[in-house]
Design a binder for these strands. Structure first.
Lengths: 133, 133
DNA sequence: TATGTGTTATATATGTAATATAACAAATAA
DNA sequence: TTATTTGTTATATTACATATATAACACATA
């Protein structure tokens, strides 16, 4: 697996896991229908508890990024990813506003902020099929 | 004051306060040298504990956005705002990467993401002097 | 039948968030 | 001088989130 955790970080482990799985989907490293490790094996691999993995999986399931099959186990959503919901747009607005404000106060120009947003977006979707380029 | 708290939010009160003060500085509503209410009066105004206000003030002092004068009380940094530190750039990268990944997975285009970043940056610096336009 | 799956339940330890009360030194205002 | 207000420090308590540990369950697979 491509997961790397920082146990010293202030960001909770379950949140780091959620982030990196979403980034895996964005980059194409994880394709729709791909299986994910069981909560027990991934927990053991990463040196963390299975309940921590389970928490991440459940959040991603609730958001619609993962499916849990009684047969196939946990897989990446094969029936189309969730779109831009109101909840996501609100989260995006709130966090971008906060970052933009601090950036502006610190003297970062609009061009620099915009360029950084764009380049980070591009970085995430590098190894992808043919969607939104 | 222009502060509005959401006590039901998952975002801690002290963090909401920090955010809104930084946004106040970014917008120009708070100018360098401007005094802020005492921890007690602001706490009473907002219906929260003085220690919660104190925690926010201390974080902002540590970051260099505020100064504490034994005479003038708490004021907005008059000797130049802190620049783009390594710590801030890392925080910015980490959060932007996470947001961009989820946006991409949800089908938001690069243009839409960029445009949203830019417009939120512009919104924060509306009533400002003559800096970085 | 044995094993592995997600899930649920319970318990514990630790840290953070928020409040409450009290006291302190330093400065200001009466 | 006296009283008040400032940020600050200390202590305690409540509530919640994080993370771990162990155990059991229903279901499916090999």
């Amino acid at each position: 697996m491509f997961i790397e955790l920082d146990l010293q970080s202030e960001t909770p482990i379950y949140a780091q896991l959620v982030d990196q799985i979403v980034e895996g989907i964005a980059s194409g490293a994880l394709q729709p229908g791909d299986p994910l490790p069981s909560v027990r094996s991934l927990g053991e691999d990463l040196g963390i508890n299975l309940h921590t993995v389970n928490k991440s999986y459940n959040l991603l399931k609730q958001e619609g990024f993962l499916q849990v099959h009684r047969k196939k186990g946990v897989i990446v959503q094969p029936d189309g990813m969730p779109g831009v919901t109101d909840a996501f747009e609100e989260k995006l607005r709130r966090q971008l506003r906060s970052l933009a404000a601090e950036a502006a106060v610190r003297g970062m120009t609009e061009a620099a902020f915009t360029q950084m947003s764009t380049s980070l977006y591009r970085d995430t979707i590098t190894n992808r099929g043919g969607e939104q380029r």
